[in-house]
Design a protein around this nucleic acid. Structure first.
Lengths: 195, 195
DNA sequence: AATATAATAGAACGTTCATTCCATAATGTA
DNA sequence: TACATTATGGAATGAACGTTCTATTATATT
């Protein structure tokens, strides 16, 4: 029935996500999307609705992908402290992605768009909740094995880790050489030490 | 010598700074500035040059003011750990500034503008360097009094504190109720404990 | 009072933006 | 093969943007 699409909805969304992550929402024009995705203007509007809708879907697939990858990454780790350290180092690499740092789309959106577009708030809050949930589960697992003192406040540590990670997402843009950030990460991980 | 200006250069810059801090660079139009500052279009261009220049100057006075206030705040504190805790709590209040969180202009700019406008980079890097310098001095002072173990890496802690504070600047926008952030802050301050 | 100088008010400019429209092309169905 | 349907290519649209221009107003100096 009718002419078939010449593009895959999912693949173009990934490209849009990468573009928004690199340039931000305002600095990415429809022309940019049309050029980069290779999708026609009219098709883009027919398929997604408009720029805002494309962004919303791109943000969705980003947060979903990030959560899935984080969960899989943590599940593959042995120790808690070492696992979170590896997670931070891997995330740093992901947020660098070449010479120019792209950071994290969820954090970038929190800064650039949240004050103006309240529609992204549920997505961003849900993302935070899921990520912190992973941290809590991971820390609790460490408490069960005895690596982490059981008297600690897993929720507070999870919120701390999310906040610190958000800080990394800012600093990696300002200063892409990770060498200086690693000592800071090791300081952060001290919250897992002691009683 | 011609007609006198009807506005003060400094006062309007402060207003511009507040506007950029609240809305971001892209979301703040010249019309917004003209309306909010009460300055005429032509006068604005005659005085500052253009939007980018207004923003650059606004960012400058923001970072300078932030540094001055931070230095004065820390100088008035007794203990190191308690002092930094008080600093974070006060900064949280500052970044909230009413029902809508405005965050920190330097951090917001790092996310929104740094990838597109390389001219802001020196200002942002200088700001980070100064802030971390204050942390280092403050920590060293604590080492001298014996509150902080002298074996600690002041530079690493300073970078950690800056990163964590940047994270607060993100989270305060996502979740303005500070009650949940305070336990996370107390976790962060544990880097100052122990040997 | 007359003049030079600088700021103001507001229209006007060209550009870029997101969005829509129209003619054309490519498929499934009859 | 003819038709209905959907996607495509590219021009067109109107609004918003940053910026500039012109006429007018207000002050300092002579």
């Amino acid at each position: 029935m009718g002419r078939p699409k010449e593009f895959s909805r999912e693949k173009t969304l990934v490209k849009a996500m990468e573009l928004f992550r690199k340039q931000g929402y305002h600095a990415t024009s429809i022309d940019d999307l049309v050029q980069e995705l290779g999708v026609n203007r009219a098709s883009l509007y027919e398929t997604y609705g408009g720029k805002r809708e494309v962004f919303a879907e791109a943000l969705d697939i980003y947060t979903q992908g990030a959560c899935l990858r984080m969960k899989a990454f943590l599940d593959a780790q042995k120790g808690v402290k070492e696992g979170i350290r590896n997670l931070f180092l891997a995330s740093l690499q992901d947020m660098k992605s070449g010479p120019v740092s792209v950071g994290c789309l969820a954090l970038n959106t929190t800064i650039e768009l949240l004050p103006l577009d309240k529609e992204v708030k549920p997505c961003l809050l849900g993302h935070q909740k899921r990520i912190q949930g992973f941290y809590v589960d991971f820390i609790r697992k460490g408490m069960a094995t005895g690596e982490i003192a059981s008297g600690k406040d897993a929720d507070a540590i999870a919120e701390f880790l999310y906040a610190f990670f958000a800080g990394l997402g800012v600093l990696v843009k300002l200063q892409p050489d990770e060498a200086r950030l690693i000592p800071a990460i090791d300081e952060a991980l001290k919250v897992l030490d002691g009683p």
